[in-house]
Amino acid sequence: MTAAETETPLSAPLDVGFDYTRSVGPVLGRFVNALRERRVVGVRGDDGRVHVPPVEYDPDTARALTDFTDVGDEGTVVSWSWVAEPLDGQPLQRPFAWALIRLDGADTCLLHAVDAGSPSRISTGMRVKARWADETVGHIRDIVCFVSVDSPPEDPAPAPPPPPVAERAEGEPVSTVITPIHLHYMHSASPEESRYLRGLAEGRLLGQRCPACGKVYVPPRGACPTDGVPTTDEVELPDTGIVTTFCIVNVPFLGQRIKPPYVAAYILLDGADIAFLHLVLGCEASEVRMGMRVRAAWKPREEWSTTLENIAHFEPTGEPDAPYESFAHHL
């Protein structure tokens, strides 16, 4: 068993998020604009059924539907399931029921939350009514949840703040809904990458050789992309190498940490077969060239951790350039 297999791979929380911005079009637009006015709108299908939420096309005939009709904000529970531990983002952050609710005047069911308190206080056939948000913005979350008509909760659940709204001209209807989506993961590095990252924390550059093609990968790989087998034999590499190819970044962008112009380059370490992307500083951007010899500029040791950011950038060594033929096959 190799050292890589005996050490637990590195892992760390990874949170990804994005505010999804969607234009609603004429049918869902009717629905969300009505919600903003604390009304619920459905659409009548070719078979006479009223769909809530409205559907753009009839599910059977595929005809575009336009016969909108108001339905009630009260209805009947058709089915329900209990959530003992609410998840992030769900309408209520205390135990609640999901329910399929047939609103009065509708023929299909709306899925929403019911603030019932306990599973003993909800049943199929129960009458429920919408609890509207204090501030409505034209979004499904304008309905905070539903509550029992006969015995609404004495202590209504706290409502989350409204979702963000898109800019629009004064008096214009809502044409866009914004839904923030945030997901949480535990991201794992491969055993090979973990070995490499732990090496970086000690100021070492560890690559591995593919047992089939003999190429040295840095970072090492769970599988050589050419041969489909894990890289195995460890190879310690120096912190010197060459620029294979590069670009001069002139365009500012969100999160940029260096003032343009600067050079992002593929660095091929001496003894490695695969280049990686890094910065070249310490000379004018216009002086950087293919084949230029460079050396790593490490951050102070006390700032090192399991990351290639321990190397602040690469800078020219002043040695003669490598001839093109020596790196042509790495381009």
Partner: peptide, 13 residues
């Protein structure tokens, strides 16, 4: 993604 996913109904529910 318009009127259902923004409520985060989970697969088990």
């Amino acid at each position: 993604p318009y009127v259902v996913a923004p409520l985060w109904p989970d697969s088990i529910s």
